[in-house]
Write a protein that binds this DNA or RNA. Structure first.
Lengths: 247, 247
DNA sequence: AGCGATTTGTCCGTATGTATT
DNA sequence: TAATACATACGGACAAATCGC
């Protein structure tokens, strides 16, 4: 058992037992270093493990807080890759309608999880399925300005925009939060989608975060009812026993 | 862009492009260190990223070989237990409207995944949130006749119906397939839900299967738009190395 | 079997940058 | 501005695993 693994296990137990409550701060790196008599490198190695499991959230200048108690029982697992579950079929062509820089006001910030005043690049595009005349949906994508260069890749791409951002900028999505509500198309939306005002539609909002819980991207999609259904398959994960520890 | 991220991206591209073939070795840490003029720490940081994606496999004394060219099938993991993700909110009261035995015709069989001619028990109920007058949604539940005795437990229960079936009959759900479409309420539905015809609503169909892929239960829910939103949180699972095999 | 060379794994110390208060 | 705390990066040292002689 390495020191880092040992420390990670210890902290995990403390979090699971509630000794460090959700929302509370855990000791600073310097303090853990002293308390367990290890190097800072080892502390960070342990914390990295907890971050990757989503148990803690570290912020420079603030500290490290507990984000979730370890899920104890049964997990669900999406059955496929991120694409399969989240996208509707891979083969949809993208048609770029507009791109513009926007500054998030209160409403937008709340909707996509940004800070008010944050500058974002908004891309408006239509999704088309092969051999279908009408667009399957209309999507607004909000990107960070430093990721603006993926826009040129979108129309020819055969993969989701989020993958383009990941690959091109070396970031990695750790978490996706999704909200689906029913709405009906207003006149402007119906015109873009070549549908009729009042038609029911799925309103899908997704926010993509990295391991440090920073917002990397957000999408707002509008899908008229007859052209789209949102399918998910969950599979209960077998509870897997960890090998007995050598205390 | 950090040096480690940069190096990781470079190596990823080389692997994806086939410059380093699957099974072939990539340069040693010492060589990468020299070639990119970075510290070994940085090299290992980059390699760790590739390991966590399952792209490479490092072994002491041997070297590091490419394991997969593909973007490792990143799985998603629901963040909570089955209840937390699938249910909306915690405490919703159930109010039983009707129960009847139906024989699945073609349409129903297709919708809920049963065989045509199969006999099913249909329960109709309204979901109410505490301290709200209007029902949050209307749900039809299709049960196998041999599970009929859970009906009496529903109204007082503090857990989902699927859990009641599991506990009372010793079965276990292994898979849930869910479909969400947007629709608008017709007159009859609006009357039941005390809403107005034409209002948009989420139409949620779920089918529950056991490990042998047998249909255990199906639900069809109708949720008026302002009363319900469907929220999901996915977390990407890190690639985890299996312990050395017991060949 | 033994030994040394190679390569990754673990661990330590230190310095500097960046975000937040 | 100053202090705090995490992020990134550099360096060195030794251990453990593997391979070839």
């Amino acid at each position: 058992m390495t020191k880092a693994v040992n420390l990670a296990r210890h902290l995990t137990e403390q979090i699971e037992s509630g000794h460090y409550a959700v929302g509370a701060a855990i000791p600073t790196e310097a303090e853990l270093q002293q308390r367990f008599d290890v190097s800072r490198h080892t502390v960070r190695e342990a914390l990295r493990e907890l971050k990757s499991r989503g148990l803690i959230l570290a912020r420079a200048g603030v500290g490290t807080v507990v984000r979730a108690r370890a899920p104890a029982t049964s997990f669900m697992q999406g059955m496929g890759t991120l694409e399969e579950v989240i996208q509707f079929g891979e083969a949809t062509r993208m048609k770029l309608l507009a791109r513009e820089t926007v500054v998030a006001d209160e409403a937008l910030a709340g909707q996509v999880g940004a800070r008010p005043g944050q500058e974002l690049l908004r891309i408006s595009l239509l999704r088309h399925r092969p051999r279908e005349a009408l667009p399957a949906g209309w999507v607004l994508i909000y990107l960070r300005p430093e990721h603006a260069d993926v826009v040129g890749l979108i129309e020819g791409a055969r993969e989701p925009v989020v993958r383009l951002v990941e690959r091109r900028h070396g970031v990695r999505i750790a978490e996706v939060v999704q909200q689906i509500v029913a709405s009906s198309l207003d006149a402007a939306q119906a015109r873009v989608l070549r549908s009729r005002a009042g038609k029911p539609a799925l309103h899908v909002t997704r926010r993509y975060f990295d391991a440090q819980d920073r917002l990397l991207m957000a999408t707002v999609g509008l899908y008229p009812s007859e052209r789209f259904s949102h399918n998910t398959c969950f599979r209960i994960q077998e509870h897997r026993e960890r090998p007995k520890g050598t205390a």
